[in-house]
Every structure is written in structure tokens, then in C-alpha cells.
Amino acid sequence: MSILVNKDTKVIVQGFTGKEGSFHAEQCLAYGTKIVGGVTPNKGGQEHLGQPVFNTVSEAVKATGATVSMIFVPPAFVGDAVMEAAEAGIELAVIITEGAPVKDMQMAKAHATKHGMKTLGPNCPGIITAEECKIGIMPGMIFKKGNVGLISKSGTLTYEGTNQVVKAGYGITTAVGIGGDPIIGLSYNQLLPMFEADPDTECIVMIGEIGGDLEIQAAKLIKEQITKPVVAFIAGQTAPKGKTMGHAGAIVSGSAGTAAEKMAALEAVGVKVVVSPAEIGKAVKEILG
């Protein structure tokens, strides 16, 4: 089992024929992901990577039955692409693009919600169900199948955490990169209950960072709804205040959004909080034995 995506999930790619879209779609196909087509306006009717190209998402959905869209369009067009996917009946949009204007994401996410479409990202590595379905830009070969679910704001920390889990002798059910922008789609509070309900997931690793309060909200939810053990790392304990640390959302404003505050909130509800990402594998091993 897994969450959100599996070997049967049908995926289309928006921005299919672009450089990034092509490169990563090819990698996903090689991983075994069922990419059934893509969308690039004015290239409808062509074939790319052995799959059909459509002018609109609506056409692509009708012709292929895809339920997930992986979005690689340039930043200025992300909002538009997400809203198009939502109206075409896509169930989950995985937004890889970095640098989408925040205003566009406010509008697009509200519109997606209205149409019942889930979103992931933007500025995220995507989602992967180990050895079944990779929708994103992560190095597929490190994700060995197992019983640990992973949620992370950071791409490279997703890989770091996964690598340690695998080196400790375990594996991953599904790993989800949620992105580090100020406004993101699915987050801890939607994903934690999914892992709780997934029979194969026995332990959850959550990786957060400074800025915002999603990790604090997660602590409240964990206390009320999550019975499975959770290991957490919060990046940015040594980050200075008022500085954006790479991710647009990773900023401590005033006294809010610090790593210390988030670590304390998670620890208080029984989460195993590690002070360095180098300890993630060890912590999982202590829990799973």
C-alpha cells in the first residue's frame, strides 16, 4: 500500500515538451510511472516520448483518463496551469516549478480547492511511491520499498532522510515533498492522516523548516489523531532572524516560526525530534527495532 499514488496511477505532464518537462518525464517513465500523455499548447496531435501530446488538459483527461498532472510550466504560467487542471477534473496536481508568484498561488489553490483538486508544491521534488510510481524530480533509485512514510518541505532533505532510512535497513512506502514556498498545497495535516490510514506505513518521518506554523499545526493534529510513531527534524536552528534561507517561505519573522518553537511543540506531543538530519536513520531504527 501507499498514499495518493501507486503503480496504476495515470499521469499527464503539463509543460511536457519543454526541456525540464521532457527530461524528468523520461526519468519517470523509466521508473515505471504510467505517464499517459502531456500538454503543450499548439503541439496537440504530436507524439513525445512515445506518448500523445494535447493542446489542453481537458482533451488530455478525456482521451487518457489521467487523474494526476505533473506541472513543469514556467513560473509565470503555474497559476494558469493549476486552474486549468482543476477545471479539467484532475484529482492531484504535482507542481514542480520553482518561483511561481505568491499571488498566483493564492488564486490557484483556492480555485483547486473549489473544484476538489489536491495540489502538491509548488517548488517541490514531487511524490514517489517506492518501486511503483515516481512523479517528480527525485533520484528514484534511492527509494527502496519499506514501511516508513516521509513528508518533507525540502527536496535534498527528502533524499537525505530516505537514504538514512534505507541504510538503517528499512524502506519507504511513499515520500512526499510538500515544498518550501509561503503557500503550498497538501501539507503535514492532510498527509499525516493518510499515512495513519495506510496499513503498510509503520513510522512517519516529517522534515520541516523555519517559517510559518505548519509544523505547529501538525503537532496539534498528531496529538489528536496520529497513533503511529513520528520522527521529526526541523531545519534552520542556526538560521538568523529576518533572512530568507533559500526557500521563499523559510524565514523567521520577528519571534515567529523559529526551529526551537516547532521542535518544542512536536516534542511535547511525543514526536521523536532529532537535532541533526544525520540522526534520522538512527531514530527510525530505535523505533522500528
Binding site: 518533507s152 518541505k153 525540502s154 527536496g155 535534498t156 532533505l157 537525505e160 518550501g180 522534515i207 523548516e209 523555519i210 527534524f233 531545519a235 534552520g236 536552528q237 542556526t238 538560521a239 534561507m245 533559500g246 526557500h247 523559510a250 526551529a259 537535532v275 541533526s276 538530519p277 544525520a278
Partner: peptide, 14 residues
């Protein structure tokens, strides 16, 4: 990666 970069700083500090 920004997350790993912060995590690296944190680990050095630790």
C-alpha cells in the same frame, strides 16, 4: 538544496 544547507549548519552546530 536549501533544506540540506540549513540541516548542515545545524549539524555543525550540534
Amino acid at each position: 538544496g536549501a533544506g540540506l544547507a540549513m540541516g548542515t549548519m545545524d549539524t555543525i552546530n550540534y
